[in-house]
Design a protein around this nucleic acid. Structure first.
Lengths: 258, 258
DNA sequence: ACTTGACCCTGACGTGGCGTCAGAGTGCAT
DNA sequence: ATGCACTCTGACGCCACGTCAGGGTCAAGT
Protein backbone atom coordinates (compact mmCIF):
# COMPACT_ATOMS: atom_id res chain seq x y z
CA UNK A 1 0.00 0.00 0.00
CA UNK A 2 1.63 3.21 -1.09
CA UNK A 3 1.50 6.67 0.40
CA UNK A 4 -1.35 9.07 -0.11
CA UNK A 5 -1.59 12.83 -0.36
CA UNK A 6 -4.08 14.85 1.64
CA UNK A 7 -6.66 14.99 -1.11
CA UNK A 8 -6.51 11.27 -1.71
CA UNK A 9 -6.98 10.33 1.88
CA UNK A 10 -9.60 13.01 2.42
CA UNK A 11 -11.59 11.53 -0.42
CA UNK A 12 -11.16 7.98 0.84
CA UNK A 13 -12.32 8.84 4.33
CA UNK A 14 -14.99 11.34 3.35
CA UNK A 15 -13.47 14.24 5.28
CA UNK A 16 -11.94 17.56 4.21
CA UNK A 17 -8.33 18.48 3.59
CA UNK A 18 -8.76 21.20 6.17
CA UNK A 19 -9.70 18.55 8.72
CA UNK A 20 -6.49 16.68 8.00
CA UNK A 21 -4.50 19.90 8.38
CA UNK A 22 -6.21 20.50 11.68
CA UNK A 23 -5.57 16.98 12.89
CA UNK A 24 -1.91 17.39 12.01
CA UNK A 25 -1.74 20.65 13.87
CA UNK A 26 -3.20 19.21 17.07
CA UNK A 27 -0.90 16.19 16.66
CA UNK A 28 -3.82 13.84 16.37
CA UNK A 29 -2.79 12.44 13.01
CA UNK A 30 0.73 13.31 11.96
CA UNK A 31 1.77 12.11 8.52
CA UNK A 32 5.35 11.95 7.36
CA UNK A 33 6.62 14.73 5.13
CA UNK A 34 8.15 14.53 1.70
CA UNK A 35 11.74 15.74 1.83
CA UNK A 36 11.53 17.38 -1.59
CA UNK A 37 8.38 19.50 -1.23
CA UNK A 38 7.18 19.06 2.39
CA UNK A 39 3.91 17.55 1.24
CA UNK A 40 2.11 15.38 3.78
CA UNK A 41 2.44 11.64 3.14
CA UNK A 42 -0.10 9.25 4.65
CA UNK A 43 0.92 5.63 4.85
CA UNK A 44 -0.69 2.48 6.16
CA UNK A 45 -0.20 3.38 9.80
CA UNK A 46 -1.90 6.72 9.33
CA UNK A 47 -4.81 5.15 7.48
CA UNK A 48 -5.48 2.77 10.32
CA UNK A 49 -5.13 5.49 12.91
CA UNK A 50 -7.56 7.65 10.97
CA UNK A 51 -10.05 4.83 11.02
CA UNK A 52 -9.82 4.77 14.79
CA UNK A 53 -10.17 8.52 14.93
CA UNK A 54 -13.32 8.39 12.83
CA UNK A 55 -14.79 5.71 15.03
CA UNK A 56 -14.29 7.65 18.22
CA UNK A 57 -15.35 10.88 16.57
CA UNK A 58 -18.58 9.28 15.53
CA UNK A 59 -19.19 8.31 19.12
CA UNK A 60 -18.94 11.97 20.07
CA UNK A 61 -15.58 11.78 21.75
CA UNK A 62 -13.61 15.06 21.81
CA UNK A 63 -10.54 15.02 19.61
CA UNK A 64 -8.05 15.65 22.38
CA UNK A 65 -9.44 12.72 24.30
CA UNK A 66 -9.13 10.61 21.19
CA UNK A 67 -5.51 11.62 20.99
CA UNK A 68 -4.86 10.67 24.58
CA UNK A 69 -6.49 7.33 24.07
CA UNK A 70 -4.63 6.44 20.88
CA UNK A 71 -1.33 7.63 22.33
CA UNK A 72 -1.67 5.55 25.49
CA UNK A 73 1.17 3.00 25.73
CA UNK A 74 -1.24 0.10 26.25
CA UNK A 75 -3.59 0.98 23.40
CA UNK A 76 -4.47 -2.21 21.58
CA UNK A 77 -5.93 -1.79 18.11
CA UNK A 78 -7.45 -5.21 17.89
CA UNK A 79 -9.17 -4.94 21.23
CA UNK A 80 -10.40 -1.45 20.36
CA UNK A 81 -11.95 -2.71 17.15
CA UNK A 82 -13.77 -5.41 19.02
CA UNK A 83 -14.98 -2.92 21.59
CA UNK A 84 -16.29 -0.74 18.83
CA UNK A 85 -18.14 -3.63 17.37
CA UNK A 86 -19.99 -4.02 20.63
CA UNK A 87 -20.68 -0.34 20.80
CA UNK A 88 -22.18 -0.42 17.33
CA UNK A 89 -24.46 -3.26 18.35
CA UNK A 90 -25.55 -1.21 21.32
CA UNK A 91 -26.27 1.71 19.08
CA UNK A 92 -28.47 -0.51 17.01
CA UNK A 93 -30.40 -1.45 20.12
CA UNK A 94 -30.75 2.22 20.87
CA UNK A 95 -32.08 2.79 17.40
CA UNK A 96 -34.68 0.20 18.14
CA UNK A 97 -35.61 2.25 21.16
CA UNK A 98 -35.98 5.32 19.02
CA UNK A 99 -38.16 3.40 16.62
CA UNK A 100 -40.31 2.37 19.53
CA UNK A 101 -40.51 5.97 20.63
CA UNK A 102 -41.67 6.92 17.17
CA UNK A 103 -44.27 4.19 17.11
CA UNK A 104 -45.53 5.22 20.53
CA UNK A 105 -45.75 8.81 19.42
CA UNK A 106 -47.52 7.86 16.22
CA UNK A 107 -50.03 5.83 18.16
CA UNK A 108 -50.72 8.75 20.43
CA UNK A 109 -51.12 11.44 17.79
CA UNK A 110 -53.07 9.36 15.31
CA UNK A 111 -56.45 10.97 14.99
CA UNK A 112 -55.89 12.89 18.19
CA UNK A 113 -55.17 16.46 19.07
CA UNK A 114 -53.79 15.92 22.55
CA UNK A 115 -51.45 13.44 24.18
CA UNK A 116 -52.66 13.46 27.73
CA UNK A 117 -52.15 9.72 28.15
CA UNK A 118 -48.47 9.64 27.17
CA UNK A 119 -45.93 10.43 29.88
CA UNK A 120 -43.63 13.25 28.85
CA UNK A 121 -40.52 11.24 29.58
CA UNK A 122 -41.50 8.65 26.98
CA UNK A 123 -41.16 11.26 24.26
CA UNK A 124 -37.40 11.23 24.60
CA UNK A 125 -36.73 7.56 25.17
CA UNK A 126 -33.68 6.51 23.18
CA UNK A 127 -31.97 9.87 22.81
CA UNK A 128 -28.53 9.38 24.24
CA UNK A 129 -27.30 12.31 26.30
CA UNK A 130 -24.16 13.58 24.62
CA UNK A 131 -22.01 13.71 27.71
CA UNK A 132 -22.52 10.03 28.33
CA UNK A 133 -20.89 8.95 25.09
CA UNK A 134 -17.39 9.64 26.31
CA UNK A 135 -17.90 7.99 29.64
CA UNK A 136 -19.43 4.93 28.09
CA UNK A 137 -16.64 4.61 25.61
CA UNK A 138 -13.99 4.75 28.26
CA UNK A 139 -15.80 2.19 30.32
CA UNK A 140 -16.14 -0.15 27.39
CA UNK A 141 -12.52 0.29 26.45
CA UNK A 142 -11.52 -0.52 29.98
CA UNK A 143 -13.81 -3.44 30.59
CA UNK A 144 -14.80 -4.56 27.15
CA UNK A 145 -15.01 -8.26 26.70
CA UNK A 146 -14.07 -10.02 23.53
CA UNK A 147 -16.92 -10.48 21.09
CA UNK A 148 -15.39 -13.75 20.06
CA UNK A 149 -15.43 -15.03 23.63
CA UNK A 150 -19.11 -14.18 23.84
CA UNK A 151 -19.91 -16.04 20.67
CA UNK A 152 -17.97 -19.02 21.95
CA UNK A 153 -19.86 -18.95 25.22
CA UNK A 154 -23.13 -18.85 23.36
CA UNK A 155 -22.16 -21.83 21.23
CA UNK A 156 -20.86 -23.75 24.20
CA UNK A 157 -24.22 -23.24 25.83
CA UNK A 158 -26.00 -24.53 22.76
CA UNK A 159 -23.71 -27.51 22.35
CA UNK A 160 -24.27 -28.40 25.99
CA UNK A 161 -27.98 -28.55 25.41
CA UNK A 162 -27.49 -31.27 22.80
CA UNK A 163 -29.67 -32.00 19.82
CA UNK A 164 -32.49 -33.64 21.75
CA UNK A 165 -32.83 -30.73 24.11
CA UNK A 166 -32.78 -28.40 21.12
CA UNK A 167 -35.60 -30.33 19.57
CA UNK A 168 -37.57 -30.03 22.77
CA UNK A 169 -37.02 -26.32 22.78
CA UNK A 170 -38.16 -25.90 19.22
CA UNK A 171 -41.22 -28.01 19.94
CA UNK A 172 -41.94 -25.69 22.83
CA UNK A 173 -41.71 -22.73 20.50
CA UNK A 174 -43.93 -24.35 17.91
CA UNK A 175 -46.51 -24.99 20.61
CA UNK A 176 -46.53 -21.35 21.65
CA UNK A 177 -46.69 -20.11 18.10
CA UNK A 178 -49.50 -22.49 17.22
CA UNK A 179 -51.48 -21.24 20.18
CA UNK A 180 -50.96 -17.64 19.16
CA UNK A 181 -51.81 -18.31 15.53
CA UNK A 182 -55.00 -20.03 16.61
CA UNK A 183 -55.91 -17.07 18.80
CA UNK A 184 -55.52 -14.83 15.79
CA UNK A 185 -57.72 -17.06 13.65
CA UNK A 186 -60.31 -17.09 16.43
CA UNK A 187 -60.27 -13.30 16.42
CA UNK A 188 -58.89 -13.04 19.95
CA UNK A 189 -57.59 -9.56 20.77
CA UNK A 190 -53.84 -9.46 21.58
CA UNK A 191 -54.59 -8.00 25.02
CA UNK A 192 -56.70 -10.97 26.12
CA UNK A 193 -55.31 -12.85 29.06
CA UNK A 194 -54.89 -16.13 27.19
CA UNK A 195 -52.74 -14.41 24.58
CA UNK A 196 -50.78 -12.60 27.26
CA UNK A 197 -50.03 -15.90 28.93
CA UNK A 198 -48.78 -17.36 25.68
CA UNK A 199 -46.59 -14.33 25.19
CA UNK A 200 -45.28 -14.81 28.70
CA UNK A 201 -44.19 -18.27 27.69
CA UNK A 202 -42.75 -16.93 24.47
CA UNK A 203 -40.69 -14.35 26.24
CA UNK A 204 -39.40 -16.98 28.66
CA UNK A 205 -38.48 -19.11 25.68
CA UNK A 206 -36.45 -16.31 24.21
CA UNK A 207 -34.72 -15.66 27.54
CA UNK A 208 -33.88 -19.34 27.74
CA UNK A 209 -32.37 -19.27 24.26
CA UNK A 210 -30.41 -16.15 25.13
CA UNK A 211 -29.31 -17.55 28.45
CA UNK A 212 -30.18 -14.21 29.99
CA UNK A 213 -33.29 -12.31 30.88
CA UNK A 214 -35.34 -10.76 28.09
CA UNK A 215 -36.24 -7.23 29.12
CA UNK A 216 -39.42 -5.62 27.89
CA UNK A 217 -37.40 -3.29 25.75
CA UNK A 218 -35.55 -6.17 24.18
CA UNK A 219 -38.83 -7.93 23.64
CA UNK A 220 -40.17 -4.94 21.78
CA UNK A 221 -37.00 -4.82 19.71
CA UNK A 222 -37.49 -8.46 18.89
CA UNK A 223 -41.03 -7.69 17.74
CA UNK A 224 -39.56 -5.14 15.36
CA UNK A 225 -37.15 -7.71 14.03
CA UNK A 226 -39.97 -10.14 13.42
CA UNK A 227 -41.89 -7.55 11.50
CA UNK A 228 -39.02 -6.33 9.34
CA UNK A 229 -37.09 -9.45 8.51
CA UNK A 230 -38.03 -11.42 5.39
CA UNK A 231 -37.46 -14.84 6.83
CA UNK A 232 -39.54 -14.17 9.88
CA UNK A 233 -42.31 -12.69 7.78
CA UNK A 234 -42.17 -15.71 5.51
CA UNK A 235 -42.16 -18.08 8.41
CA UNK A 236 -45.09 -16.55 10.21
CA UNK A 237 -47.16 -16.13 7.07
CA UNK A 238 -46.68 -19.80 6.53
CA UNK A 239 -48.20 -20.51 9.91
CA UNK A 240 -51.22 -18.35 9.13
CA UNK A 241 -51.90 -15.49 6.78
CA UNK A 242 -51.59 -12.27 8.70
CA UNK A 243 -49.68 -13.81 11.57
CA UNK A 244 -46.49 -11.88 10.75
CA UNK A 245 -48.39 -8.75 11.71
CA UNK A 246 -50.45 -10.15 14.56
CA UNK A 247 -47.53 -11.57 16.52
CA UNK A 248 -45.33 -8.43 16.60
CA UNK A 249 -48.36 -6.33 17.48
CA UNK A 250 -49.27 -8.74 20.22
CA UNK A 251 -45.73 -8.68 21.54
CA UNK A 252 -45.74 -4.93 21.63
CA UNK A 253 -49.09 -4.80 23.37
CA UNK A 254 -47.69 -7.28 25.87
CA UNK A 255 -44.65 -5.13 26.52
CA UNK A 256 -46.84 -2.07 27.01
CA UNK A 257 -49.20 -3.83 29.41
CA UNK A 258 -46.68 -5.43 31.72
CA UNK B 1 -50.07 17.25 30.49
CA UNK B 2 -49.04 20.39 32.32
CA UNK B 3 -46.39 22.97 31.58
CA UNK B 4 -42.73 22.48 32.33
CA UNK B 5 -39.93 24.83 33.30
CA UNK B 6 -36.58 24.82 31.56
CA UNK B 7 -34.91 22.55 34.07
CA UNK B 8 -37.70 20.01 33.92
CA UNK B 9 -37.71 19.75 30.18
CA UNK B 10 -33.95 19.82 29.99
CA UNK B 11 -33.82 16.85 32.28
CA UNK B 12 -36.53 15.00 30.37
CA UNK B 13 -34.82 15.46 27.05
CA UNK B 14 -31.25 15.08 28.28
CA UNK B 15 -30.11 18.50 27.11
CA UNK B 16 -28.93 21.62 28.94
CA UNK B 17 -30.87 24.68 30.03
CA UNK B 18 -28.39 26.69 28.01
CA UNK B 19 -29.39 24.76 24.91
CA UNK B 20 -33.03 25.62 25.51
CA UNK B 21 -32.13 29.27 25.98
CA UNK B 22 -30.21 29.14 22.73
CA UNK B 23 -33.04 27.45 20.88
CA UNK B 24 -35.39 30.15 22.13
CA UNK B 25 -33.03 32.85 21.00
CA UNK B 26 -32.76 31.49 17.46
CA UNK B 27 -36.55 30.98 17.44
CA UNK B 28 -36.19 27.27 16.99
CA UNK B 29 -38.20 26.38 20.08
CA UNK B 30 -40.14 29.25 21.57
CA UNK B 31 -42.01 28.48 24.77
CA UNK B 32 -44.75 30.66 26.16
CA UNK B 33 -43.88 33.02 29.01
CA UNK B 34 -45.41 33.24 32.44
CA UNK B 35 -47.09 36.59 32.86
CA UNK B 36 -46.08 36.86 36.50
CA UNK B 37 -42.34 36.19 36.31
CA UNK B 38 -41.50 35.78 32.59
CA UNK B 39 -40.35 32.22 33.11
CA UNK B 40 -40.38 29.99 30.07
CA UNK B 41 -43.29 27.54 29.96
CA UNK B 42 -43.09 24.44 27.81
CA UNK B 43 -46.35 22.73 26.98
CA UNK B 44 -47.33 19.74 24.94
CA UNK B 45 -46.74 21.42 21.62
CA UNK B 46 -43.21 22.39 22.60
CA UNK B 47 -42.44 18.90 23.84
CA UNK B 48 -43.42 17.39 20.53
CA UNK B 49 -41.50 20.00 18.61
CA UNK B 50 -38.42 19.35 20.71
CA UNK B 51 -38.67 15.69 19.88
CA UNK B 52 -38.55 16.58 16.23
CA UNK B 53 -35.62 18.90 16.81
CA UNK B 54 -33.69 16.17 18.57
CA UNK B 55 -34.36 13.74 15.75
CA UNK B 56 -33.07 16.07 13.09
CA UNK B 57 -30.18 17.16 15.27
CA UNK B 58 -29.12 13.58 15.68
CA UNK B 59 -29.08 13.25 11.93
CA UNK B 60 -26.57 16.09 11.78
CA UNK B 61 -28.93 18.68 10.38
CA UNK B 62 -27.99 22.32 11.13
CA UNK B 63 -30.38 24.01 13.54
CA UNK B 64 -31.44 26.74 11.18
CA UNK B 65 -32.38 24.17 8.59
CA UNK B 66 -34.36 22.33 11.22
CA UNK B 67 -36.21 25.53 11.93
CA UNK B 68 -37.02 26.06 8.29
CA UNK B 69 -38.29 22.54 7.97
CA UNK B 70 -40.48 22.63 11.06
CA UNK B 71 -41.84 26.04 10.17
CA UNK B 72 -42.82 25.05 6.65
CA UNK B 73 -46.59 25.36 6.15
CA UNK B 74 -46.93 21.80 4.87
CA UNK B 75 -44.90 20.17 7.61
CA UNK B 76 -46.68 17.02 8.68
CA UNK B 77 -45.65 15.55 12.02
CA UNK B 78 -47.02 12.12 11.41
CA UNK B 79 -45.33 11.77 8.06
CA UNK B 80 -42.10 13.08 9.51
CA UNK B 81 -42.16 10.49 12.25
CA UNK B 82 -42.62 7.75 9.70
CA UNK B 83 -39.80 9.11 7.60
CA UNK B 84 -37.56 9.13 10.62
CA UNK B 85 -38.42 5.57 11.29
CA UNK B 86 -37.11 4.66 7.88
CA UNK B 87 -34.01 6.71 8.42
CA UNK B 88 -33.30 4.90 11.65
CA UNK B 89 -33.60 1.58 9.88
CA UNK B 90 -31.13 2.82 7.31
CA UNK B 91 -28.75 3.85 10.05
CA UNK B 92 -28.94 0.38 11.41
CA UNK B 93 -27.97 -0.96 8.03
CA UNK B 94 -25.09 1.45 8.03
CA UNK B 95 -24.04 0.19 11.42
CA UNK B 96 -23.93 -3.24 9.92
CA UNK B 97 -21.59 -1.87 7.33
CA UNK B 98 -19.34 -0.49 10.02
CA UNK B 99 -19.38 -3.82 11.77
CA UNK B 100 -18.34 -5.46 8.52
CA UNK B 101 -15.57 -2.91 8.18
CA UNK B 102 -14.39 -3.79 11.65
CA UNK B 103 -14.47 -7.48 10.94
CA UNK B 104 -12.56 -6.98 7.72
CA UNK B 105 -9.98 -4.91 9.52
CA UNK B 106 -9.68 -7.46 12.29
CA UNK B 107 -9.18 -10.21 9.77
CA UNK B 108 -6.44 -8.26 8.10
CA UNK B 109 -4.48 -7.25 11.17
CA UNK B 110 -4.77 -10.53 13.00
CA UNK B 111 -1.27 -11.86 13.39
CA UNK B 112 -0.07 -9.54 10.69
CA UNK B 113 2.02 -6.44 10.65
CA UNK B 114 0.98 -5.14 7.23
CA UNK B 115 -2.26 -4.85 5.32
CA UNK B 116 -1.12 -4.98 1.76
CA UNK B 117 -4.08 -7.05 0.65
CA UNK B 118 -6.81 -4.71 1.89
CA UNK B 119 -7.81 -1.83 -0.39
CA UNK B 120 -7.50 1.50 1.37
CA UNK B 121 -11.06 2.47 0.52
CA UNK B 122 -12.42 -0.49 2.44
CA UNK B 123 -11.04 0.96 5.64
CA UNK B 124 -13.68 3.66 5.64
CA UNK B 125 -16.69 1.75 4.39
CA UNK B 126 -19.74 2.79 6.39
CA UNK B 127 -18.60 6.18 7.57
CA UNK B 128 -21.25 8.56 6.39
CA UNK B 129 -19.92 11.87 5.10
CA UNK B 130 -21.42 14.56 7.29
CA UNK B 131 -22.60 16.79 4.49
CA UNK B 132 -24.73 14.06 3.05
CA UNK B 133 -26.90 13.76 6.13
CA UNK B 134 -28.77 16.95 5.39
CA UNK B 135 -29.25 16.16 1.75
CA UNK B 136 -30.47 12.69 2.48
CA UNK B 137 -32.89 13.91 5.09
CA UNK B 138 -34.40 16.44 2.78
CA UNK B 139 -34.75 13.89 0.04
CA UNK B 140 -36.41 11.45 2.37
CA UNK B 141 -38.74 14.10 3.69
CA UNK B 142 -39.70 15.03 0.18
CA UNK B 143 -40.08 11.57 -1.28
CA UNK B 144 -40.43 9.37 1.73
CA UNK B 145 -43.01 6.67 1.41
CA UNK B 146 -45.14 5.53 4.24
CA UNK B 147 -43.74 2.60 6.19
CA UNK B 148 -47.23 1.26 6.54
CA UNK B 149 -47.77 1.31 2.80
CA UNK B 150 -44.55 -0.65 2.35
CA UNK B 151 -45.61 -3.26 4.85
CA UNK B 152 -48.97 -3.54 3.13
CA UNK B 153 -47.29 -3.98 -0.25
CA UNK B 154 -45.10 -6.68 1.17
CA UNK B 155 -48.08 -8.49 2.60
CA UNK B 156 -50.08 -8.11 -0.57
CA UNK B 157 -47.20 -9.71 -2.40
CA UNK B 158 -47.14 -12.58 0.05
CA UNK B 159 -50.89 -13.06 -0.01
CA UNK B 160 -50.81 -13.14 -3.79
CA UNK B 161 -48.35 -15.97 -3.66
CA UNK B 162 -50.79 -18.08 -1.73
CA UNK B 163 -50.05 -20.82 0.76
CA UNK B 164 -48.97 -23.42 -1.75
CA UNK B 165 -46.51 -21.10 -3.36
CA UNK B 166 -45.19 -20.22 0.09
CA UNK B 167 -44.66 -23.86 0.84
CA UNK B 168 -42.74 -24.23 -2.40
CA UNK B 169 -40.57 -21.32 -1.46
CA UNK B 170 -39.78 -22.70 1.96
CA UNK B 171 -38.99 -26.06 0.42
CA UNK B 172 -36.61 -24.25 -1.90
CA UNK B 173 -34.93 -22.65 1.10
CA UNK B 174 -34.71 -25.94 2.96
CA UNK B 175 -33.10 -27.49 -0.10
CA UNK B 176 -30.45 -24.76 -0.26
CA UNK B 177 -29.77 -24.92 3.44
CA UNK B 178 -29.50 -28.71 3.41
CA UNK B 179 -26.97 -28.49 0.62
CA UNK B 180 -24.94 -25.94 2.52
CA UNK B 181 -25.09 -27.90 5.74
CA UNK B 182 -23.94 -30.99 3.92
CA UNK B 183 -21.06 -29.08 2.39
CA UNK B 184 -20.00 -28.06 5.87
CA UNK B 185 -20.18 -31.61 7.13
CA UNK B 186 -18.15 -32.73 4.14
CA UNK B 187 -15.52 -30.18 5.03
CA UNK B 188 -16.04 -28.16 1.86
CA UNK B 189 -14.44 -24.70 2.03
CA UNK B 190 -16.96 -21.86 1.69
CA UNK B 191 -15.14 -20.52 -1.37
CA UNK B 192 -15.64 -23.70 -3.37
CA UNK B 193 -17.72 -23.26 -6.49
CA UNK B 194 -20.45 -25.65 -5.39
CA UNK B 195 -20.99 -23.63 -2.22
CA UNK B 196 -20.90 -20.41 -4.14
CA UNK B 197 -23.60 -21.71 -6.44
CA UNK B 198 -25.76 -22.62 -3.48
CA UNK B 199 -25.24 -19.18 -2.03
CA UNK B 200 -26.21 -17.71 -5.39
CA UNK B 201 -29.48 -19.55 -5.09
CA UNK B 202 -29.83 -18.46 -1.49
CA UNK B 203 -29.35 -14.83 -2.35
CA UNK B 204 -31.88 -15.13 -5.14
CA UNK B 205 -34.28 -16.67 -2.68
CA UNK B 206 -33.89 -13.74 -0.35
CA UNK B 207 -34.38 -11.29 -3.23
CA UNK B 208 -37.52 -13.13 -4.20
CA UNK B 209 -38.85 -12.91 -0.65
CA UNK B 210 -38.01 -9.23 -0.51
CA UNK B 211 -39.46 -8.59 -3.94
CA UNK B 212 -36.40 -6.54 -4.70
CA UNK B 213 -32.78 -7.16 -5.48
CA UNK B 214 -30.48 -8.26 -2.67
CA UNK B 215 -27.28 -6.24 -2.94
CA UNK B 216 -23.99 -7.67 -1.76
CA UNK B 217 -23.97 -5.24 1.10
CA UNK B 218 -27.43 -6.28 2.17
CA UNK B 219 -26.38 -9.89 1.88
CA UNK B 220 -23.46 -9.27 4.21
CA UNK B 221 -25.79 -7.49 6.63
CA UNK B 222 -28.07 -10.50 6.51
CA UNK B 223 -25.12 -12.72 7.39
CA UNK B 224 -24.53 -10.59 10.45
CA UNK B 225 -28.15 -10.96 11.42
CA UNK B 226 -27.91 -14.71 11.10
CA UNK B 227 -24.89 -14.76 13.34
CA UNK B 228 -26.23 -12.49 16.04
CA UNK B 229 -29.85 -13.46 16.38
CA UNK B 230 -30.76 -16.24 18.81
CA UNK B 231 -33.48 -17.77 16.72
CA UNK B 232 -31.29 -18.03 13.68
CA UNK B 233 -28.46 -19.47 15.70
CA UNK B 234 -30.86 -21.97 17.22
CA UNK B 235 -32.31 -22.85 13.86
CA UNK B 236 -29.00 -23.41 12.13
CA UNK B 237 -27.48 -25.34 15.02
CA UNK B 238 -30.46 -27.61 14.72
CA UNK B 239 -29.61 -28.29 11.12
CA UNK B 240 -26.04 -29.12 12.00
CA UNK B 241 -23.71 -28.27 14.85
CA UNK B 242 -21.55 -25.38 13.78
CA UNK B 243 -23.76 -24.38 10.89
CA UNK B 244 -24.72 -21.10 12.52
CA UNK B 245 -21.11 -20.07 12.10
CA UNK B 246 -20.41 -21.70 8.78
CA UNK B 247 -23.31 -20.15 6.90
CA UNK B 248 -22.66 -16.49 7.81
CA UNK B 249 -18.97 -16.95 7.06
CA UNK B 250 -19.81 -18.53 3.75
CA UNK B 251 -22.18 -15.70 2.91
CA UNK B 252 -19.53 -13.14 3.70
CA UNK B 253 -16.92 -14.96 1.63
CA UNK B 254 -19.45 -15.02 -1.18
CA UNK B 255 -20.04 -11.29 -0.94
CA UNK B 256 -16.30 -10.64 -0.97
CA UNK B 257 -15.67 -12.86 -3.98
CA UNK B 258 -18.41 -11.61 -6.27
C1' DA C 1 10.96 27.70 -22.05
C1' DC C 2 6.48 29.10 -20.85
C1' DT C 3 1.62 28.39 -19.61
C1' DT C 4 -2.11 26.19 -17.38
C1' DG C 5 -4.67 23.65 -14.09
C1' DA C 6 -4.70 20.84 -10.15
C1' DC C 7 -2.61 20.15 -6.24
C1' DC C 8 0.29 21.49 -2.17
C1' DC C 9 1.59 24.63 1.86
C1' DT C 10 0.79 28.10 6.09
C1' DG C 11 -1.84 31.53 8.23
C1' DA C 12 -5.92 33.77 9.69
C1' DC C 13 -10.73 35.05 10.15
C1' DG C 14 -15.21 33.39 11.05
C1' DT C 15 -19.17 30.31 12.28
C1' DG C 16 -22.40 27.02 14.67
C1' DG C 17 -23.61 25.21 18.89
C1' DC C 18 -23.28 25.45 22.76
C1' DG C 19 -20.44 25.53 28.10
C1' DT C 20 -19.40 28.49 31.66
C1' DC C 21 -19.92 32.35 34.47
C1' DA C 22 -21.75 36.78 36.39
C1' DG C 23 -25.24 39.42 38.44
C1' DA C 24 -29.83 40.01 39.55
C1' DG C 25 -34.75 38.39 40.28
C1' DT C 26 -38.34 34.72 42.02
C1' DG C 27 -40.52 31.21 44.89
C1' DC C 28 -40.75 28.44 48.82
C1' DA C 29 -39.59 26.73 53.33
C1' DT C 30 -37.66 27.74 57.80
C1' DA D 1 -35.31 37.88 57.15
C1' DT D 2 -32.49 34.12 55.38
C1' DG D 3 -31.14 30.25 52.58
C1' DC D 4 -31.60 27.38 48.76
C1' DA D 5 -32.96 26.13 44.27
C1' DC D 6 -34.57 27.93 40.52
C1' DT D 7 -35.27 31.70 36.95
C1' DC D 8 -33.68 35.49 33.82
C1' DT D 9 -30.29 38.15 30.38
C1' DG D 10 -25.81 39.02 28.85
C1' DA D 11 -21.23 37.92 27.58
C1' DC D 12 -16.90 35.52 27.00
C1' DG D 13 -14.84 31.45 25.37
C1' DC D 14 -14.10 26.89 23.23
C1' DC D 15 -14.20 23.09 19.81
C1' DA D 16 -14.06 21.62 15.22
C1' DC D 17 -13.68 22.86 11.59
C1' DG D 18 -15.21 26.05 6.69
C1' DT D 19 -13.55 29.55 3.96
C1' DC D 20 -10.23 32.44 2.01
C1' DA D 21 -5.69 34.51 0.87
C1' DG D 22 -1.25 34.21 -1.02
C1' DG D 23 2.42 31.63 -2.52
C1' DG D 24 4.88 27.10 -3.98
C1' DT D 25 4.97 22.44 -6.72
C1' DC D 26 4.02 19.18 -10.35
C1' DA D 27 2.85 17.44 -14.75
C1' DA D 28 1.11 18.00 -19.23
C1' DG D 29 0.60 20.76 -23.27
C1' DT D 30 2.12 24.32 -26.52
Amino acid sequence: MRNHTVKQIAKLAGISVRTLHYYDRIALLCPTRSSSNNYRCYGEFELLRLQQILFYRQLGMPLLNIKKLLDAPDFDLENALKTHREKLLQQMENNQKLITTIDNTLREIKGKKTMTSMPAKDLYEGFAPQKQAEFETWLIEKNGSSIEAQIEDSKAHLAKSGTDAMQQKMIGLADIEAGLAQAMLDGVAPTTKSVMDLLDRHRNWVANMWDRECSLEAYEGLAQMYQAHPEFVARYERLAIGFSNYLPNAMQSYASKI
